[in-house]
Design a binder for these strands. Structure first.
Lengths: 151, 151
DNA sequence: ATAATTCCTAAACCTAACTTTAGATCAAGG
DNA sequence: CCTTGATCTAAAGTTAGGTTTAGGAATTAT
C-alpha cells in the first residue's frame, strides 16, 4: 500500500472518531470531497482529518452544516490548506462564538433584572426581544410572549 | 362569560404568541395542564400565560422541554404561583445559563490559543474535551477528534 | 336557527443531523 | 480460490419540537 493511495473511509473514521455514516453524510452535504479508487471506494487525503476536526469544532460552536460549508469555502481549493489558512477561517468561527456569548450574557443580565421584578411575562420585560431568538439556536416556537400587563 | 370560565386555547395562544398546536404539544409533554369544560374543550387559568412565557424564555436559554418540565415542578401545585415562586425557579434558570456561558467562554478562549498554534486537530488541543460536548447542545456526532500529531 | 368560528383527536408530515438496514461489491489474507 | 471484513448505494428509521391535515363536534355571532 503506497502512501499515495490515501485513506479509506474506515481509517478516516478511526482517525477522527466520527462514524463512517457521518462522514458519508458530510460528503452528501458538501463538506468533504474524496476521490474514488478503481473499485469505486472513497479515498481521502491526510488533510481531510483536519478538515473533519474543524467541522466538529464548528458544530460545538453552534454552526449548522450549511454554515460550516460556507466557512470551509474560505479555504484554498487548489492546494492543501496551510496552518495559516486554518487560522484565517478560524477567526470567523471566533467572531461567531463571540456573538453567541454576547447574546447569552445579555439574556442572563436581563434575567437578573427580571428575577428582581418578577415580571417574566410582560412585553416590556427586557427578555422580550425577538432578535435574540433569531440568533439563538434552532428550536422553540415562532413567537415569544405578548402578554398584557395585568396577567 | 363569567371570569371563572377561564381562557380558551385560542385566547391563550393570542396572549402568548404561541401556536395553538404548540400549546397542545406542550400539554402532551406535561408542561401545562388545563381542565376541560362541559363540551370537552381546554380551559386555562390566567397564570398559565406566565407559565408559557417561562417555557419560552427557558427554551431560549437552551433547556429541553423535559428539563423545563423539571424546573416547573419546583412550583407549588396547590396554589397559583406567586411572583416569589417564579423568582425562585428563575434562579435555577440563571444558574443553567451561567454554566452555558462559562462553557462557551472557555471554548472561545481555547480557540484563541488554537488560532495561535494552528493545531486544530490534535488530541492535545485544549478544544479536545468530551465534557463540553455533552453539555453543549444537541446535534453533532458522538466523538471529537483523535488525530495523530503529524496530520 | 343557521352560519361562521373555534376546538377536538389522531395521525401524518417537517427539518436537522445522523444511524440502520438490506443486499451487493471490493480488498486483503491464507 | 475462498473467506472475511470493509465498502458501496438507496431507502427507511430516529429524536426534538413542532405543524398540517382530515373529519367531527362545540361555541359564538347573526
Amino acid at each position: 500500500m503506497a502512501a499515495s493511495e490515501g485513506l479509506a473511509i474506515g481509517a478516516l473514521a478511526r482517525r477522527t472518531g466520527l462514524a463512517v455514516s457521518a462522514i458519508r453524510y458530510y460528503e452528501a452535504q458538501g463538506l468533504i470531497s474524496p476521490w474514488r479508487n478503481a473499485g469505486g471506494q472513497r479515498r481521502y487525503q491526510r488533510a481531510d482529518i483536519r478538515r473533519l476536526s474543524f467541522v466538529m469544532i464548528a458544530q460545538q460552536f453552534g454552526l449548522t452544516l450549511p454554515e460550516i460549508r460556507e466557512v470551509l469555502s474560505g479555504l484554498p481549493g487548489n492546494r492543501t490548506p496551510t496552518p495559516q489558512d486554518w487560522q484565517d477561517i478560524s477567526k470567523g468561527l471566533k467572531a461567531h462564538l463571540d456573538q453567541r456569548i454576547d447574546t447569552l450574557t445579555r439574556l442572563r443580565d436581563n434575567l437578573d433584572g427580571c428575577i428582581g421584578c418578577g415580571c417574566l411575562s410582560l412585553p416590556k420585560c427586557a427578555l422580550y426581544n425577538p432578535d435574540d431568538r433569531a440568533k439563538s439556536n434552532g428550536s422553540g416556537p415562532r413567537y415569544l410572549m405578548g402578554d398584557s400587563p395585568e396577567a
